[in-house]
Write a protein that binds this DNA or RNA. Structure first.
Lengths: 201, 201
DNA sequence: TCTAAAATAGGAACACGTTCCACTTTGGTT
DNA sequence: AACCAAAGTGGAACGTGTTCCTATTTTAGA
């Protein structure tokens, strides 16, 4: 869209557009935080972001896109934080467990928000593939970094496979918790067991 | 509800009620099979099942309940079939892989239906906990039976944990496939890798 | 500075899940 | 056989995601 000066893959447009986008995502997170998935109503988001409904749909073509994009932004924050302050621990298993539990605890401290973002993620269809993929990459990279903190560039296929399996379990556990099928403690257990099964060294 | 003669946990009511329930689930599966999640519209289900909209809601309090109940019925069929013709294979890993691939292939032969049922399952909230739990039990029992075909009654906690992790991976893989993020081949790969990581003996 | 194109505002309209209501039918009890 | 409570019918109505349209404002380029 903008004629020059696009930094990379992402072209965020003018400052005004970046600002609108930010306002929309902020409004989304606020509403989700207060009332979960159902409270994120497109008219409410538009109003709170001080934007017309049509504009909201120009930026995000559906409620699911909107929520998954919000998830992506939150997740990028988490990933940055984790990169700045890496987890400690003697074994890969310990570090991964610590990293996941830290993240999980963060999410569980805002249950409504987590519910909204997780449900959106799980409900997303093919049209959201791009955003979903990015979130998946972030998760995998977070996990492999916890496995090999010192920039090992020797990631075997097995390493990546393990990270992906752990990611799957974590997502399932999160869904279980979000939908009230498992307690926070059980969620932690579930992750810990899986990691120990996969990373025994 | 019925005064006497309730066999067990499930009380399915009179023959007419069983028949209505069956007609509704049949209609659901037909519509899902043709057009996926979006095509399962409550008015359309009611019409095809020859039932009033209010009656449909009396039997199934929401679209999600309806679809998850349909999933449950389908899954029970699968589980029975698998019980009658157990998978063969020398190791637990082989048998589990075969069982999952067989099931996956069955689901992939009706993509729209699978999409509808899987999305409903992932979107379900706490109010569907009962049905979800039953499906989870079916899946775990299918997996442990593949792991120990000859009625081993010595299921350790680790065995169950492994089965659960495999189930999680399978679900994630299925979601990935349903939402067009991964191909059928990749889905099989993903499952196979996970099982081999977890069941190396 | 002026102008055409793009973006936004504001809001009506539509679709589908869900609820509700008035009326009718059914099935078991007396 | 008459009766009553439960179940079912048919359809209106409501909420929220989504689409669409016109008028206005902003932006980029000549």
């Amino acid at each position: 869209m903008s004629t020059a000066n696009s930094l990379a893959v992402e072209d965020l447009g003018s400052a005004a557009q970046r600002d609108r986008r930010k306002r929309i995502l902020d409004a989304t997170i606020q509403l989700a935080s207060q009332g979960g998935f159902d409270a994120v109503q497109m008219r409410a988001v538009a109003e709170r972001a001080d934007v017309a409904l049509g504009t909201l749909y120009r930026y995000f073509p559906s409620k699911i896109h909107l929520l998954v994009s919000a998830l992506q932004r939150e997740f990028e924050r988490t990933e940055t934080a984790m990169r700045e302050r890496p987890v400690e621990g003697d074994t890969a298993a310990e570090r991964v467990i610590t990293a996941l539990k830290r993240t999980t605890r963060g999410m569980q401290s805002d249950p409504q928000l987590t519910e909204a973002l997780t449900r959106a993620f799980m409900f997303a269809d093919a049209s959201v593939a791009t955003e979903i993929h990015q979130v998946g990459m972030l998760l995998t990279s977070m996990l492999t970094r916890a496995m090999y903190p010192e920039g090992h560039d020797e990631l075997t296929e097995e390493d990546v496979a393990i990270a992906r399996v752990i990611g799957d379990v974590w997502l399932s556990a999160l869904v279980g918790w979000v939908t009230g099928r498992t307690s926070a403690a059980e969620t932690g257990q579930q992750i810990e067991v899986a990691v120990r099964l996969l990373l025994r060294d």
